[in-house]
């Protein structure tokens, strides 16, 4: 294999043979080294949460990845390939520039409450696709909570693990963890920022976050009444699907109002699978 090893021959055939394999080996090892280098860079640049989200996103079925503009009906059909990061999405930018979602976004600031199938959806706030909402308070900090849909999915959790005060959260990264029965899930953070205060169910919000100086982008959040409504309708449809997964089929067609504590009323359903589906953690 090496020139200093007995039987190494300076012949073309021999050199092609050993050289070829050395090249292949070097290529494989280089690829692996590059992977390690990239992983190191990700850690150094504190992009772990972002990459984790991107890795998770790859596993979503196309149903879950439907573009918000497809949900609201502006586009006929589109599957997001941008990890729900609308700020970096060319299509989103184009739509905004051409004013097409105007009619959708026009309702922004349309304060008030909306009710869909018994879900209480206040429109004074922005919604994240992982079923959290964000509301800016008077001091400019964000209040983050679980939306009504998410609340009813989890019901009365046995355990909630909130982040420590002072810790940094990243948009689409883990905000807090919830356990209910045999099922558990993590709730995604809708925004970047530092945790100032933690709340609970009673207070109606879970986290108070100081917006990050380097990233206060909220373009990925749903704001307008029309968009939010279309999205919740879509989510109900997805929930229906998720509950019908193999094993036990559960139907929600019981009067059109979502029950407060779904796991309690349908204990046989695969809530672990449903949480994975609805809280975007496959």
């Amino acid at each position: 294999m090496f020139p200093w090893v007995h039987e190494f021959r300076w012949e073309i055939g021999h050199l092609i043979f050993t050289g070829g394999f050395a090249l292949v080996l070097v290529a494989i090892l280089t690829a692996i080294t590059l992977v390690f280098k990239k992983v190191y860079q990700i850690y150094k640049r504190r992009q772990v949460e972002k990459i984790l989200w991107q890795a998770t996103f790859e596993d979503f079925p196309s149903q879950t990845r439907t573009c918000r503009h497809a949900i609201s009906g502006v586009l006929k059909q589109r599957v997001c390939n941008n990890h729900f990061e609308c700020g970096a999405c060319a299509v989103h930018k184009q739509l905004i520039e051409h004013g097409i979602p105007e009619k959708v976004l026009a309702a922004a600031g349309d304060y008030g409450n909306m009710e869909i199938f018994g879900l209480n959806i206040p429109l004074d706030r922005m919604y994240h696709r992982g079923h959290t909402w964000v509301k800016q308070d008077d001091e400019g900090n964000y209040l983050v909570g679980l939306d009504d849909f998410g609340k009813r999915l989890i019901g009365k959790p046995e355990e909630v693990v909130l982040p420590e005060i002072g810790s940094r959260l990243y948009a689409n990264g883990t905000a807090w963890k919830v356990k209910r029965g045999k099922a558990d899930t993590r709730i995604l953070s809708p925004v970047d920022g530092e945790v100032l205060e933690t709340g609970d169910d009673e207070k109606g919000w879970y986290l108070k976050i100081k917006p990050a100086a380097d990233n206060s982008d909220t373009s990925h959040l749903l704001k307008s009444g029309k968009e939010v409504k279309a999205w919740f309708m879509k989510e109900l449809e997805r929930l229906q699907f998720a509950l019908a997964s193999d094993g036990i089929g559960v139907s929600l067609a019981d009067g059109g109002v979502l029950i407060d504590d779904l796991p309690k009323s349908h204990p046989d359903a695969d809530w672990d699978g449903v949480y994975g589906e609805m809280f975007l953690e496959p």
Binding site: V24, A27, I28, A31, L34, V35, F36, K38, V39, I42, Y43, V48, I51, L52, Q54, A55, T56, E58
Partner: peptide, 23 residues
């Protein structure tokens, strides 16, 4: 995959799959 570094490694390794598939 709940171990963050594993998932990050997996994700980056996956981007090299075309090269590995070619080799």
């Amino acid at each position: 995959k709940q171990i963050p570094s594993f998932l990050v490694f997996e994700f980056k390794l996956h981007t090299f799959m075309p090269i590995l598939a070619g080799i």
